[in-house]
């Protein structure tokens, strides 16, 4: 099923993909051209999820200072 035309996604592209997914906006073109391994997405999504939590926590700290 792996399409030979597709390029392997770089780390930065996967990060961009996950971040845009968190917003819910992603171009279809991105996925059509890139081959992304699921574990890449999962690892980066978990990291992004954790950094989302940390970001909100630090905003809370900033507000309460």
């Amino acid at each position: 099923m792996i399409d030979p035309i597709k390029q392997k996604a770089s780390l930065l592209q996967v990060v961009r993909m996950v971040l845009s997914a968190f917003l819910g906006i992603r171009k279809r073109a991105d996925h059509d051209q890139l081959e992304v391994a699921p574990w890449q997405v999962i690892v980066i999504a978990i990291i992004a999820g954790l950094s989302f939590v940390l970001a909100v926590v630090s905003i809370v700290r900033l507000v309460l200072r």
Binding site: A21, G24, I25, R28, A45
Partner: peptide, 14 residues
């Protein structure tokens, strides 16, 4: 925005 729907659903879940 099929792809964005998929990703938005996944991120809602996480």
């Amino acid at each position: 925005g099929y792809a964005s729907m998929v990703y938005a659903t996944a991120s809602i879940a996480i």
